[in-house]
Nucleic acid binder design. Structure first.
Lengths: 185, 185
DNA sequence: AAATATACTTACTTAGTAGTAAGTAAGCAA
DNA sequence: TTGCTTACTTACTACTAAGTAAGTATATTT
C-alpha cells in the first residue's frame, strides 16, 4: 500500500470535474504526483478503468452521506444535498454527472453503465426523499415525485455548469430559488 | 462559393452536440464530407475559429427564431423554446450551451467569450419573456425573473444531458413539469 | 492571353495520446 | 537465501491530433 492509487483516483476526480473526462490525459495525473505515466497504467490499465473507479467512489460517497442524514427531516436532507453542490461550486468543480453526461457517447460500455448506475442512484434517493418529505409536510410540490426529482437534479447539475460560464452567483441564484420553491409554501 | 464551408460548420455543430468540442477532430468532419483534413483548415485555420463560428450561427439562429415569436403570447413563446429543445432531444443532440459549458475551462479566450455571449443572450431573452408574461398573466412564478430564467435554462440544458443517460423520457418528464409549473396556476 | 483568386489536395511536421514490454528495487514469505 | 509480489521506471510502439507549406485545378477578371 502506497497511497498512490488513492491519489490517482482523487486527481482524476478533480480533473473530470474541471476539464472533462476526454480533456485530461495520464500525464496530467502523473506529473503533479511526481510519478511516471506508466505508473498510472499499472493501477488502471485503461483510462476506462480509471473512470469506472472514479464513479464507483462517487456512488459510495453519496451512499455514505445520505446515510448520515437519515434521521433528519427531508427538507433538511435536501438542504444538505444542495450544500454539497454549493461546495463544489465554490471550488470551481462541476458535478460528475454533468461532466460525464456530455461525453457519454464517447465512453466504453463499462463506463456508460456506471454513469447510468450513478444517475439512477441519485434519482432514486431524491424521489424517496421528496415523497417522504411531502408526506411529512416539510417539502411541497406538484406532480409526481420522480418527475420532480429529475427537475431538481437537472437544476443542480446545470447550476454548476452555468456558474462556470456566467459567474458563481448563478449557482446561488438557482439554489436559493429551488429551495424556496420546495420548502416555503 | 462551394457550400463546403457551410457543410463544415453544420457538421461541427452536430459533432459538438453529440460528442463534445474536445472529443471530435478535423478528421471527423473531413471524412464524411469527402474532403481532406487540410480543407477544413483552409476555411477555419484553428479549431477555435470553427468553434466561434458554430456559436455565432447559433446566436443568429436564436435571434431569428425568437424574432418570429414576437407577436405570440409569452407562454406560447416559452412553449416554442421548449419545443426547440424537444426537437434536439429526439435527434439525440444535447444543447450547445450544455456541451460547451463542460469543456469551458479548456477553451481559448475567444471561444470562452463567445460562449458567454450566447449564454447572456438566452438569459436576457428569457428574463424579458418571463417578466412580460407575468405582467400579462400568462406565466406565473415567484421571485425575480432573472433568477427564474436561470432556473429554466438550467432545466432545459440538463434535461438533454439526463435524457442521454436515463433515456429520452427524462426530457419529456422535465419539460412537462416545467411548463405545468409556469403556465397552469 | 495572362494574371489573379478561390478552393482545394498532397505531403508533411510537431506534439501529443493511450497503451505496452521489459527491467528493477524493496519487502515479505517459505 | 531463494523466490515471489508490489509498485513502480525506462524506453518504447502505434496512433491521432492540430496545424502548415507548397502545389494544382478551375473559374474570374483584366
Amino acid at each position: 500500500m502506497s497511497g498512490t492509487k488513492e491519489k490517482i483516483v482523487s486527481m482524476a476526480d478533480r480533473l473530470v470535474r474541471t476539464k472533462g473526462f476526454n480533456a485530461f490525459s495520464y500525464k496530467d495525473i502523473a506529473a503533479p504526483l511526481d510519478i511516471k505515466n506508466a505508473a498510472v497504467h499499472y493501477h488502471f490499465p485503461a483510462k476506462c478503468d480509471l473512470g469506472v473507479e472514479v464513479i464507483e467512489q462517487e456512488i459510495e460517497k453519496f451512499r455514505e452521506q445520505t446515510g448520515k442524514w437519515k434521521q433528519l427531516p427531508e427538507n433538511e436532507q435536501l438542504a444538505r444535498l444542495v450544500d454539497v453542490f454549493r461546495q463544489h461550486n465554490s471550488q470551481g468543480n462541476i458535478c460528475l454527472m454533468g461532466s460525464l453526461a456530455t461525453d457519454f457517447e464517447t465512453f466504453a460500455p463499462a463506463m456508460q453503465t456506471k454513469v447510468q448506475e450513478m444517475a439512477d442512484g441519485i434519482v432514486t434517493w431524491l424521489t424517496q426523499c421528496l415523497e417522504q418529505g411531502r408526506k411529512n409536510k416539510c417539502i411541497h410540490f406538484k406532480g409526481a415525485a420522480h418527475a420532480r426529482a429529475l427537475l431538481i437534479m437537472s437544476n443542480l447539475q446545470s447550476s454548476l455548469l452555468l456558474s462556470r460560464v456566467m459567474g458563481p452567483t448563478a449557482f446561488r441564484s438557482i439554489a436559493d430559488q429551488l429551495m424556496e420553491d420546495l420548502c416555503q409554501k
